Amino acid sequence: MSAYNVSIRQKEMSIRKVLGASVSQLFIQLNKPFLRILMLANLIALPLAYLLVDRWLSSFAYRITVHWWMFAVAGFFALLIALFTVSYQSARAARANPVDSLKEA
């Protein structure tokens, strides 16, 4: 999804770069929508997953306790992996030569 988004916005990023935008500004511009979606997904999924797993585990004869930090760590690593993937695509697009993108009609 991030590769597709970057390919669609390639000319926009090239024009911004020609007009003086820095690589960090382009990087933030490409990462911000994905970061918002990922944070919203974590805010919805983590409490729901905690409640469902806690209810499911309570039906067993040998019970274990599930702590909130287990889900927070899993959510953090999922966020980190997704951010790394999106950042790779964004950095590649931000460092690309704008002339190459603007030549193509």
Results as ranks from 00 to 15, higher is better:
residue 1 M to H: 15
residue 2 S to I: 15
residue 3 A to G: 13
residue 4 Y to R: 09
residue 4 Y to P: 04
residue 7 S to G: 09
residue 9 R to T: 09
residue 11 K to F: 08
residue 14 S to A: 15
residue 16 R to Q: 04
residue 19 L to E: 02
residue 20 G to H: 05
residue 22 S to I: 08
residue 23 V to N: 06
residue 24 S to P: 00
residue 24 S to Y: 14
residue 26 L to H: 01
residue 27 F to M: 00
residue 28 I to Q: 06
residue 29 Q to M: 11
residue 31 N to F: 15
residue 31 N to S: 08
residue 32 K to D: 12
residue 32 K to C: 12
residue 35 L to M: 13
residue 35 L to D: 06
residue 37 I to K: 13
residue 38 L to E: 00
residue 39 M to R: 10
residue 40 L to W: 11
residue 40 L to R: 13
residue 41 A to H: 02
residue 41 A to F: 09
residue 46 L to M: 12
residue 49 A to D: 00
residue 51 L to I: 10
residue 52 L to E: 04
residue 53 V to D: 07
residue 57 L to R: 15
residue 58 S to F: 00
residue 59 S to N: 12
residue 59 S to G: 13
residue 60 F to Q: 08
residue 61 A to Y: 12
residue 62 Y to H: 14
residue 63 R to E: 12
residue 64 I to C: 11
residue 65 T to C: 10
residue 67 H to K: 13
residue 67 H to I: 00
residue 68 W to F: 06
residue 70 M to C: 09
residue 71 F to W: 02
residue 71 F to D: 03
residue 74 A to W: 02
residue 75 G to T: 00
residue 75 G to C: 01
residue 77 F to N: 05
residue 78 A to Y: 01
residue 79 L to M: 09
residue 79 L to Q: 03
residue 81 I to E: 07
residue 81 I to S: 05
residue 81 I to V: 10
residue 83 L to W: 02
residue 83 L to E: 03
residue 86 V to A: 01
residue 88 Y to D: 10
residue 90 S to G: 03
residue 91 A to P: 07
residue 92 R to M: 08
residue 93 A to V: 14
residue 97 N to P: 05
residue 103 K to H: 06
residue 103 K to F: 09
residue 104 E to S: 11
residue 105 A to G: 14
